[in-house]
Design a binder for these strands. Sequence first.
DNA 1: AATTATATCAACCGCCCCGAA
DNA 2: TTTCGGGGCGGTTGATATAAT
Length: 292
Amino acid sequence: MGRAPCCSKVGLHRGPWTPREDTLLTKYIQAHGEGHWRSLPKKAGLLRCGKSCRLRWMNYLRPDIKRGNITPDEDDLIIRLHALLGNRWSLIAGRLPGRTDNEIKNYWNTHLSKRLKSQGTDPNTHRKLSEPVQGRTRSRKKTTTKHKNNKKKHNSSNKRAFMVQPEKPKVHLPKPVRVTSLLSLPRNESFEFNTTSTTNLEGGGLGSSGTEDVQLPSYVFNGDDQNGTAGFLVGVHDHHDLVNGSDFECQSHVFTGENSLEKLYEEYLQILKNEDDHDQVQLDSFAESLLI
DNA sequence: AATTATATCAACCGCCCCGAA
DNA sequence: TTTCGGGGCGGTTGATATAAT
């Protein structure tokens, strides 16, 4: 059965957006804000589907989109987050300010996945390809057919399968956290939640996107689980936006300054290492903490 | 220079979640 | 409680760019 399409696509433009359409959409959203995507095209004078408008805005026109190549730091973070979260691109994107889920997804599929394979690592399981895979069900079965009619049903049945594992309670994914609402905040203010605990990637000289100062949030670990290695890992801004704002107690360690990413990675490594020893328990608790 | 193969990524699709009626 | 619709997600496509022959 399925839902009716979001709009009758009759008479609507499709394909690449023209500069004029971009301008119309941008001006409308600047004046009226995001949302009401279905009615937006008509009001904005666009012959586009509402979903198309939303996608264009989210993935291309938003003022906080970070242009330029993915830096090695981001690169590494994506890999590690993918190991924890699987193909939940919006969640991963929520940890990479200025990056979109679509961009990360594309980057994964075109670069990282191949790189991992070339390094002898299964990009789905993040284990060595020679290792038997057991107990990890998050990776989905890849479709091999290119027939559209088949693939969609096939995919959709798999799509949620890894999210609802039989032996585990159902996890409802949170909406991804956009770092800020960009209409209300100028770009430079987007990540000023804690200027002393951010890492300036440019400072690392890692071939970033050029002129933009990109600051990643530092991360806060809650080391109060059994052996103090895993626990929570959330972006600082998430205390306001993701973790219900107020009653989130966790700052047992706050990494600040230039080494925060390195420390973060070390913790990740530790977590991944422990995964082998502790049958995924800590990893899952960590991953689920991101989903709260 | 022309052709073919491969890589990239913006855009689309269909499904699901969740809040409102 | 059920239905409906908006919004969001992940998978995939296809046009374009680039590299290789």
